[in-house]
Simulated assay, not measured.
Amino acid sequence: MKTVAFIFARGGSKGLPGKNIKSLNGKPLLQYSIDTAKKVAQISDIFVSTDCAAIAAVARQNGVKVIERPAELATDTSPEWLSWRHAIDYVTEHFGAFERFVSLPATSPLRNEQDVQAALDKLSSTGADICISVTPANRSPYFNMVRLQADDSVEIVVKPEGAVSRRQDAPAVFDITTVVYAAAVTFIQQHSSIFAGKVVATVVPKIRAVDIDDIYDFMFAEAVLQSELYDAEK
């Protein structure tokens, strides 16, 4: 079963301009995703989808192929799902058919190859349409998240069965991360959203689940990369 990895990295970023090729601990952010993909034995090819010449240059310098993304698929409001479909169509037309799709967003540089392999394994073992990555959430809708009512009172977002006096007693909840997405190509071609099919997840520890959106995320990721704790978790 042929598996192809993609990194979707557009040029426009309002939160942190130029972030996808900004130097993080000595190398472009984009390169972290490329390096990880190269370590996964089941991945047979790697493509970077971008609308930006500078990003494309970094991709080629790292030995991966580039897909020129149309401008209409590279705006702030463009659904990434459509970019996924565009990339699949491009690779199928120019390089032949493949069965498994992996997306490794450049904004998650702290993942490792085991995180990617875990998603591929879960996808295969469960027969799911897509495997996403999640990490334990800090807050819980069963315990410390509330919503405002019309009379200015508040209520818990999800009322648990019975009393919950400690967060540890509430059902475990997780945040979706951008560490890895692994999916059947036919699922992406035939549907329009992640939760349109059978979705499974692989759990990633918080230290590897950083998603860089602004300079504070970037600074945190750099601090983690330089820490002994991250070396121990790799």
Rank of each mutant, 00 (worst) to 15 (best):
S108H: 06
P109N: 06
P109F: 02
R111Y: 01
E113P: 07
E113Q: 14
E113C: 09
D115R: 06
D115N: 15
D115S: 11
V116E: 06
V116C: 10
Q117F: 03
A118E: 06
A119L: 07
A119I: 05
A119H: 06
L120G: 07
L120F: 06
L120V: 04
D121C: 06
D121M: 05
S125F: 00
G127N: 08
A128E: 05
A128G: 10
A128T: 09
A128S: 14
A128C: 09
D129K: 11
I130W: 02
S133E: 02
S133F: 00
V134M: 12
V134W: 01
T135P: 06
T135S: 15
P136Q: 04
N138K: 13
P141C: 02
F143M: 03
F143S: 04
N144E: 01
V146F: 15
V146Y: 15
L148I: 12
Q149L: 15
Q149N: 15
Q149C: 13
Q149M: 15
Q149R: 15
A150I: 10
S153A: 14
S153N: 13
S153G: 13
V154Q: 13
E155W: 02
I156N: 03
V157C: 13
V157E: 11
V158A: 12
K159D: 10
E161H: 08
E161I: 11
E161K: 11
E161F: 11
G162I: 04
A163L: 13
V164Q: 02
S165P: 00
S165Y: 14
R166W: 08
R167S: 07
R167W: 00
Q168T: 08
A170L: 00
A170V: 00
P171N: 03
A172T: 10
A172S: 12
F174D: 02
F174A: 06
D175K: 10
T177R: 04
T177H: 08
T177D: 03
V179E: 08
V180A: 12
V180P: 10
A182D: 08
A183H: 08
V185T: 13
V185Q: 07
V185Y: 02
T186K: 14
T186Y: 09
T186R: 14
F187L: 09
F187W: 06
I188Q: 05
I188K: 02
I188T: 05
Q189H: 11
Q189F: 03
Q189M: 13
Q190M: 06
Q190K: 14
S192T: 14
S192L: 10
S192A: 13
S193E: 14
S193L: 05
S193A: 14
S193Q: 13
I194D: 03
A196P: 02
G197H: 02
G197M: 04
V200T: 15
A201P: 01
T202N: 09
V203Q: 10
V203L: 07
V203I: 13
V204C: 10
V204G: 05
P205G: 09
P205I: 04
K206Y: 05
I207S: 11
